[in-house]
């Protein structure tokens, strides 16, 4: 297991890597910017496991926190409502800006 690339509070962008087939990054979260809530550990890549390619090197999984108002145009809940979801390392890029 290698050192996780991101730590809590780091700003990241969730990518759309355009990969067809089985992936675990919901469309609604792609292109959005959020912050790392926690590093969850390393897990085998589901994009390989789904096709019978088991036993590959585990990859880092992170919990990313997004503001609901950034996710949904016209979101009507409270301004600080958030959504968190799990994103694998290769679907993330540093977003720059100040860590929060």
């Amino acid at each position: 297991m290698s050192e996780p690339k991101y730590g809590p509070g780091d700003r990241v962008q969730i990518l759309d890597i355009g990969k067809p087939g089985h992936v675990r990054t919901p469309t609604y979260a792609r292109h959005k910017i959020g912050v790392i809530e926690r590093y969850c550990g390393d897990f085998e890549n589901p994009e390989d496991k789904a096709y019978g390619r088991w036993g590959g090197a585990p990859i880092a999984l992170y919990r990313v926190r997004l503001m609901q108002s950034d996710l949904w145009p016209g979101y009507t809940g409270a301004p600080n409502d958030v959504l968190e979801l799990e994103i694998y390392d290769h679907w993330l890029a540093p977003a720059g800006g100040e860590a929060v």
Partner: peptide, 15 residues
């Protein structure tokens, strides 16, 4: 109530 924030957790991967 509005003063309480809601956190939605999408259980989309391994946790």
């Amino acid at each position: 109530p509005e003063r309480v924030d809601i956190a939605v957790h999408d259980s989309n991967a391994d946790l």
